[in-house]
Computed example of a mutant assay.
Amino acid sequence: MDRIHAVNRERIEWCCAEQGMAPGELAGVLDMSADRWEAFWTDEAGLTFNQLRKLAEHFGRGVLFFLEAGPVAAEQVHTPQFRTLAQQKPELSQRLRLLIERVERQRALFLSLREDLDDALWSPFEAPELPAGNVAAAARATRLWLELGEGKNDFESYRKAVEAKGILVFRTNGYNGPWQIAKESPVAGFALYDPQCPVIVVKKMASDAPQAFTLMHELAHVLLHKASWIDDEADLRSTQGREQEANLFAGLVLVPDHFLASISDADRPDDVAGFNEWLKPQRNAWGVSAEVILRRLLAVGRLPQATYQAYRAWSLEAGNNMKDEGGTRKYRHREPKHIFGDRYVRTVLNSLSARRITLSKASGYLDGLKIADVHELERHYAGA
């Protein structure tokens, strides 16, 4: 079997350093014996194409990346947004790094599509003018900007409102795959700031309510801080710095002060186990968790800190006993809608229908969806 000898070992070392692994560990990845790996590493032997392909897939790179001469220029491989997230969380797993890069590639694909569109299909992002140093006023202005009404809302309605302002909102999959944030990962979401087309990524969770809070938390980083950011679940409860601002902003956008008037303190159960039922009408109407509402009541002095902490302890224990079913690929043709959002998918399908893009290009914009599944997705949107 022919072997490729022009493999750039310096680039392999760079990738290993990024992933925090020793080059020798790749022998197992490539199904090579220690002796064969040593022969390759000392330049006595090359790699087969299949081994090179496995190497590329492991690091999320193209095959040609390892055949190019010279060292890696990190600033060319990683965008400033990626480097910002990596600096914030140096312990990011390789899997999460690959997801961030995947999101960036998808954004680049969409921007290339947008060049041929008019504003009727996708309006460009224009950040609102928000008052500086006043999170409450900024939240009120953002509700008006998003055109959030007083009626019922849920994660999808919040998502559509944000998308309507030219911001991409991706939600990861619940099952194992390239678009999943692993269940064991503490990361809840991240934002990639860009003055033309920001992207917010929300982790798929067992229920929609915490996803709505994550979405608005990341929106705060985009609008208030104009920065790329990555957040663990603990950051969504932080009381310090920019995380505190983002949490306050998210709570006020989702549950403004006047919403709290519909909650009766007199009806509050003595047992915190009854709080979810007590707040059920508000939870259903606002698309938020009981904890978000309780934090708002705490902030305005209508709930003792000890009571809130008791609910938190009960909620964590109850949450640990919840079964997360993950997800299924039964409806593969609907995956792009779940991941990239309704507006993104409609933009691609409208462009296809208007013959601005080919069926092959539409497949690429929709995460490599098979042609048959693209047609099935069209029928889904047509209600057939």
Results as ranks from 00 to 15, higher is better:
5 H>M: 08
5 H>P: 00
6 A>M: 00
12 I>Q: 03
16 C>R: 00
18 E>T: 00
19 Q>D: 09
26 L>K: 11
26 L>G: 00
27 A>S: 13
31 D>G: 13
33 S>M: 05
38 E>L: 10
39 A>K: 14
40 F>G: 01
42 T>Q: 12
46 G>L: 05
46 G>P: 05
49 F>W: 08
52 L>T: 15
57 E>G: 07
59 F>R: 00
60 G>Y: 00
63 V>R: 15
65 F>L: 02
66 F>T: 13
68 E>T: 15
73 A>H: 13
76 Q>M: 10
77 V>W: 07
77 V>L: 12
82 F>V: 07
85 L>E: 04
87 Q>S: 09
89 K>G: 04
95 R>K: 13
99 L>G: 01
100 I>G: 04
105 R>I: 07
108 A>E: 15
109 L>M: 09
112 S>R: 14
121 L>R: 15
123 S>W: 13
129 E>I: 06
129 E>A: 08
132 A>V: 05
134 N>M: 02
137 A>Y: 05
138 A>G: 04
141 A>H: 08
141 A>K: 09
142 T>K: 00
143 R>A: 00
151 G>W: 05
151 G>L: 07
157 S>F: 03
159 R>W: 01
162 V>R: 13
166 G>K: 01
168 L>T: 02
170 F>C: 14
171 R>V: 13
171 R>N: 11
177 G>Y: 11
184 E>D: 06
184 E>M: 08
185 S>E: 11
188 A>W: 03
191 A>F: 02
192 L>H: 01
193 Y>L: 02
195 P>D: 09
199 V>H: 09
205 M>T: 11
207 S>E: 14
208 D>S: 15
210 P>D: 04
211 Q>V: 01
213 F>K: 15
215 L>V: 04
222 V>R: 03
223 L>F: 10
227 A>I: 07
231 D>N: 15
237 R>N: 13
239 T>V: 12
240 Q>D: 13
242 R>W: 11
246 A>S: 14
249 F>K: 01
254 L>V: 01
258 H>W: 09
259 F>I: 10
260 L>K: 05
262 S>K: 10
263 I>E: 01
277 E>Y: 07
281 P>F: 07
283 R>M: 08
284 N>L: 15
285 A>D: 14
288 V>F: 11
289 S>D: 06
290 A>E: 03
291 E>Q: 12
292 V>K: 11
292 V>W: 06
296 R>G: 08
298 L>W: 13
303 L>F: 05
309 Q>R: 11
309 Q>F: 01
311 Y>D: 00
313 A>V: 09
318 A>S: 06
326 G>T: 04
330 K>T: 15
332 R>T: 12
334 R>P: 03
341 G>Q: 04
342 D>I: 02
343 R>D: 14
347 T>R: 05
349 L>K: 01
350 N>K: 07
353 S>Y: 08
357 I>C: 00
359 L>S: 11
360 S>I: 13
360 S>R: 13
363 S>T: 10
365 Y>W: 04
369 L>W: 09
376 E>N: 12
378 E>Y: 05
381 Y>I: 02
383 G>L: 05
384 A>S: 14
